[in-house]
Design a binder for these strands. Structure first.
Length: 477
RNA sequence: CGGGGCGUAGCGCAGCUUGGCUAGCGCGCGUGGUUUGGGACCACGAGGUCGCGGGUUCAAAUCCCGCCGCCCCGACCA
């Protein structure tokens, strides 16, 4: 393994790519724009998955699986949807050595195939709400790809729900957005802003798109999750009606919501440093690594024995790895486990044993600290907890420091030229034209209209016209 | 799709300008030994369709033509 990662300050994008490759989260696949998620990266995804899955089930959802292939005719049923997705779809034209009667789209998202089935399953108000989630892979033919952040194929979860009323569907939409916020902040230790997307950034086929926006260390925004209120658009396209108590026929109301393997990229970009990954304990595949240090057989037996006992003293909820390889030096191991972002490292050698202690290093702090063996487990558990909180606070502080409230266009443009452009909180008149021009002129986009924001009389930062509210603008991934 | 870069051992590269003999270096890998508190060392060893196809030549990694692939930067997107 080569030494040294590029510095974030010198080349953030190269730092990111090299880190993902060298920490063995992922590797480039033979197909352009595709990646292999390697075991260590997949382990992070599995932890994301199992946590969210539990949260979805706690909110009444069940899992199902719908097919990868979607008949072309389904894709074209909802006008906006097809217009939005057609350009990025992979289409299968041949199967079994023969040209297909009807081309099959590889799902870019599953609204159409799911709503074609919901049509069969929903007849009465008694069938509602229908709350289904699926874990799946999807394909979107992107022009430009980046490991985890944007790949041609990616893994995600997509929730698709059907409701009797608009109110209920809207409640569901914001409820799931809140689930995402909770997950991002409590597990990923990534603070997010809940908001509504502008018309132009809205999901193709949605009435309204909600999102959570996170800030990466280079001051760019990353959309970390979305939740859509679909109104009756898909119900009408697929003719999904239900009979009310009164016997009337009504179209059902829909939502859909998703997060993807992009979250792994968000995790990397939110916390990691020039030495490698920094993983929040609640999502780290390995919590504690023990590196034994010894000379000769005698010490080896002694130190390894103690190290094993130490590893075994932790309960099943703490994942401890004893690195007893003898083909690499202790120093090499330190660097490797830092690269891989293991939250806590314990060094234990003869000198420690003589003093009845071990050396402990927290990944985010990097300082060595001697801890008596008898209290080691307790201290480690506390540090894991503290680190989880510390990462969130650090990220939050960074976001606050990198968010500017601005009112004139010139300072805004200047801000977007800064090495860390950050978020700008500014007025927007609401016109699509201003939005487009703003993007053209500054490379920034309107990330969202924050839910927390109060209506406020101000003026549009670009055209100066009256504005009813402030929005978040930023360069983004 | 436009611009740039790169394709030579598992990885990173040199060699190409000015064709030549057995294609080289570092890391990694294997074996043996000494080692282990911040990326250890010695010895021996394995490992190559020089991206692909064609051409020029006595001779091509090197020159010419064509193709392919990947990465990076811009226009679409979670």
């Amino acid at each position: 393994m080569a030494k040294g990662l590029p510095k974030r300050s010198e080349d953030y994008s190269r730092w990111y790519t090299e880190l993902v490759l060298r920490a063995e989260l992922a590797d480039y696949a033979p197909v352009k724009g595709c990646m292999v998620i390697r075991p260590y990266g997949y382990a992070i995804w599995e932890r994301i998955q199992s946590t969210l899955d539990r949260m979805f089930k706690q909110t009444g959802h069940v899992n199902a699986y719908f097919p990868l292939f979607i008949p072309e005719s389904f894709m074209t049923k909802e006008a906006e949807h097809v217009e939005g997705f057609a350009p990025q779809c992979a289409v299968v034209t041949h199967g079994g050595g023969a040209k297909l009667e009807e081309p099959l789209y590889v799902r870019p998202t599953s609204e159409t195939i799911i709503w074609s089935m919901y049509g069969k399953w929903i007849q009465s108000y008694r069938d509602l709400p229908l709350l289904i989630n699926q874990w799946a892979n999807i394909v979107r033919w992107e022009m430009r790809t980046r490991l985890f952040l944007r790949t041609t194929e990616f893994l995600w979860q997509e929730g698709h729900t059907a409701h009797a009323t608009e109110t209920e569907a809207l409640e569901e939409t914001v409820k799931m957005l809140e689930v995402y916020r909770t997950f991002a902040e409590e597990y990923m230790a990534v603070p997010v802003i809940k908001g509504v997307k502008s018309e132009s950034e809205k999901f193709a086929g949605a009435v309204r798109t909600y999102c959570i926006e996170a800030m990466m260390q280079d001051g760019k925004a990353l959309q970390a999750g979305t939740s859509h209120y679909l109104g009756q658009n898909f119900a009408k396209a697929f003719n999904v009606q239900y009979q009310t108590k009164e016997g009337k026929l009504e179209y059902v109301y829909a939502t859909s919501w998703g997060v993807s393997t992009r979250l792994v990229g968000a995790l990397v970009m939110a916390h990691s440093d020039d030495n490698g990954l920094v993983l929040p304990p609640r999502l780290a595949p390995i919590h504690v690594v023990i590196v034994p240090i010894f000379k000769g057989e005698e010490e080896r037996a002694l130190v390894l024995g103690k190290a094993r006992a130490l590893a075994d003293s932790f309960g099943p909820e703490t994942i401890v790895r004893l690195d007893d390889r003898d083909n690499v030096s202790a120093g090499w191991k330190f660097n490797e486990w830092e690269l891989k972002g293991v939250p806590v490292r314990i060094e234990i050698g003869p000198r420690d044993l003589a003093k009845g202690q071990a050396v402990m290093v927290r990944r985010d702090l990097g300082e060595k600290r001697a801890v008596p063996l008898e209290s080691l487990k307790e201290v480690v558990l506390r540090e894991l907890q503290d680190m989880q909180g510390a990462l969130l606070h650090k990220a939050l502080d960074f976001r606050q420091a990198s968010t500017k409230r601005l009112d004139d266009y010139e300072s805004f443009k200047k801000q977007m030229e800064e090495p860390i452009p950050g978020f700008v909180d500014a007025g927007w008149c609401g016109s699509a034209e201003c939005e487009a021009k703003l993007q053209e002129e500054t490379k920034a986009t309107i990330r969202c209209l924050p839910l927390a924001g109060q209506p406020e009389k101000c003026s549009c930062i670009r055209c100066g016209n009256p504005s009813e509210r402030r929005v978040i603008m930023a360069k983004s991934y």
